[in-house]
Design a protein around this nucleic acid. Structure first.
Lengths: 226, 226
DNA sequence: GCATGTGAAGCAGTTCACAGCG
DNA sequence: CGCTGTGAACTGCTTCACATGC
């Protein structure tokens, strides 16, 4: 058992971990035994030195002159990501996006299990999606507690997002993935990540309008601070 | 017509522009006439100095002692984002996510018009979604050219993404929003932004597993880089 | 008086380059 | 000899603090 305390990991590094994990998974499936930082970097589209620095934050997993053992490295990264234990997730807002996420194979493969679907529309409640019955949002807090769900996904319209956020916090959720185009207010103990499709397109549009501003390759933008 | 050459805008600033745009839009709807950098910062969940610095990259739009004129500032930001002209978008991969995006109201409101939907499934082709008939991916390049679509969205399974990417490039697309969990290879002239839901959840899981690593407030989304 | 705009300071992540080790 | 791991240099964003101007 390696050391216990993770040193402060740079946020950009944390964001890249899932990428490494994904690529290593593929390599493992292809029965590749070892990778050098250069190869892994190539496959991830990042700089080799960055890969080594990132991995070094967790310890020395590589072998000099050889590279990294794919299976071992994969295991270490998954452990860092806390994928060893399955995590329960609830989704609020069963519109098209909510449906899409509920049925997403990627979530399950990544170690997440969806344990609750919620909405407020009378005609949506009761519907069965991905084997789960959609319930009214008022039941969200209790379900979070009974299912021990610590992660919530918000796919409601903007107007309903803050209310849902409050209910999630009430249910003990400590991490929220927010797709609603709204700035949420949540307790400091609740981690919020925002995803905004329109904003992504707008960024692309910006660089189209300002080709000179494009920095060759955008790359890992890091977190904008709050 | 203001000046022509945009100075090099920091990538983090570009990522925040859509956020400012959104918040300013709300303020405009509420008929708020002016905002100070502090108020705008509060509403966006960012630092006030950052707001001023960001805006200063585009010129001096504020009035000392008063703040910024909401309508004027909004107009300037939209102009910077190139929202003044509508942009045509094509979507490849009409699974649940593709459907969700095709019907997304947010895209239209943000100045994007969806002009083509594509898939390879025989039973999906021909279906009409959001007023558009789904066509076979082989038609993608020609439609991009005829509709002058410069932005493509990939919502296919991972295995089909690179092929679609190639076809988009062939069709003259210069910006791609990629939802497939794959590292795409595209010409340097094509800007790619990746969005990976599972990766977002994994990042949240990481911070749950390492509460000590949480940097106060991560904030606004960032893209895992290429 | 009050809020912007900005030089300067501070800080963080990236990249370099090489010592160290298999 | 090759590749990792890492100190050090570098680059760039963030934050500060205040002069400027309404």
């Amino acid at each position: 058992m390696p050391e216990r305390f993770a040193r402060r990991i740079p946020a950009p590094t944390v964001v890249r971990l899932p990428l490494y994990q994904r690529v290593l998974n593929e390599l493992a499936r292809e029965a590749v035994a070892t990778v050098s930082s250069a190869e892994l970097a190539e496959a991830c589209g990042v700089n080799a030195a960055k890969v080594r620095k990132d991995l070094s934050h967790f310890g020395s997993y590589g072998t000099r002159g050889t590279g990294y053992d794919v299976d071992y490295l994969l295991g270490q990264i998954q452990r860092e990501l806390g994928i060893d234990r399955e995590r329960a997730v609830v989704i609020a807002g069963m519109g098209h996006l909510g449906h899409a996420l509920a049925r997403s194979a990627g979530f399950v493969q990544s170690g997440f299990r969806i344990v609750g679907l919620f909405d407020v529309q009378p005609d949506t409640i009761g519907e069965v999606v991905a084997g789960l019955r959609v319930r009214h949002v008022s039941e969200l807090p209790s379900v979070c507690r009974s299912e021990d769900a610590a992660i919530g996904v918000i796919t409601t319209p903007g107007g309903a997002a803050q209310d849902v956020c409050d209910r999630m916090a009430e249910g003990g959720v400590s991490a929220i993935l927010n797709f609603a185009p709204v700035v949420l207010t949540a307790p400091a103990s609740v981690q919020v990540r925002d995803v905004d499709f329109s904003a992504e397109l707008q960024v692309l549009a910006f660089y189209q309008a300002h080709p000179d501003a494009a920095t060759g390759r955008p790359e890992a933008p890091a977190r904008a601070g709050r």
